[in-house]
């Protein structure tokens, strides 16, 4: 394979990963890193470095729209970014300590976990009243959003900001270690622990992912893990794919079978990653 062909292949896979990611509501990183490492034999440190930059790109692109719509709660985001950036910093350093095999192992576990979360996503939501929280009041985290189906502004209250902070530290660590956005961890933290509405959680998660990723990207860059030859096409491809997916494909795809197919693929890739980390 010539470098030119390699770049075209990487670009193609990146567009695909961005497209699929936007349809499934996850970042492209979870899909792209296995493709880069298992199929194209790219060193996992470079794959992670390339992915983290593309995560910033897709997050910023999506967040631009969410902020304009005032769907993302920027105060909650700012507060939780305290924890995600600290987590991302620790994660990026840890990935240097545990090395390639350790990253494969953690990645395999996170993939298997994400697959299970996606399987269970359809369960009923807890509709109990949101408990009052003094710190949430002090931080003025409560807000409201425009609900299209109900045709009115829906106010909501936020609770347990400290629990959210703790969970976000974990999400940030995973993100920094693996070069993924870890929206699959951020959304449940806001949705289940802090009781933000799901739409607001998704939008706010997207808004935060860019800042989380930038914190670890700084470490990866300084360590020389962001290779322009790989990260360039990945960045352009994933952004293009995510844009195409959200603009043109979202409404036309049956997401139930897509999700089922994806869970299968996730589990298989998780197995491959774990095997690679166990016995290289």
């Amino acid at each position: 394979m010539t470098p030119f062909l390699f770049m075209i292949v990487v670009l193609g896979f990146s567009v695909g990963a961005g497209l699929l990611g936007s349809l499934l509501g996850i970042g492209g990183g979870l899909i792209l890193i296995p493709v880069l490492t298992l199929l194209l034999k790219v060193d996992i440190q470079y794959a992670v470095g390339a992915s983290i930059v593309s995560v910033i790109a897709t997050s910023s692109g999506a967040a631009a729209a969410y902020v304009r719509d005032r769907m993302a709660n920027t105060r909650v985001a700012m507060f939780l970014e305290l924890a995600t950036t600290a987590g991302a910093l620790s994660g990026a350093f840890m990935s240097g300590l545990v090395g390639g095999r350790g990253v494969y192992l953690v990645f395999g576990c996170v993939m298997a976990g994400s697959a299970l979360v996606m399987l269970r996503r359809m369960r009923a939501r807890d509709e109990a009243p949101v408990p009052a929280d003094a710190l949430a009041d002090r931080l003025a985290l409560h807000g409201s959003y425009w609900d299209e189906s109900r045709g009115r502004e829906v106010p909501y209250r936020v609770t347990r900001p400290l629990a959210g902070l703790g969970l976000m530290y974990v999400a940030g660590t995973v993100s920094g270690m693996l070069g993924i956005g870890s929206g699959a961890l951020k959304v449940p933290a806001m949705d289940l622990a802090m009781r933000l509405p799901l739409k607001v959680s998704t939008a706010t998660s997207n808004f935060m992912i860019g800042v989380t990723a930038a914190a670890s990207a700084g470490v990866y860059f300084a360590r020389g893990n962001i290779d322009p030859f790989i990260a360039g096409p990945v960045c352009v491809g994933v952004t293009l794919g995510a844009w195409l997916g959200s603009r043109h494909l979202m409404a036309r795809v049956n997401s139930t079978w897509l999700r089922a197919l994806f869970v299968g693929v996730l589990l298989w890739v998780a197995f491959e990653m774990l095997r690679k980390g166990w016995a290289p």
Binding site: G25, A62, D69, M71, A72, K199, M250
Partner: peptide, 20 residues
């Protein structure tokens, strides 16, 4: 990322702006 972006802002007043 799971929602199609809807560009136009629907509300003149900002919900996230501080109330102070």
């Amino acid at each position: 990322m799971s929602e199609a972006p809807k560009p136009e802002p629907r509300r003149p007043e900002a919900a996230t702006v501080a109330v102070q």
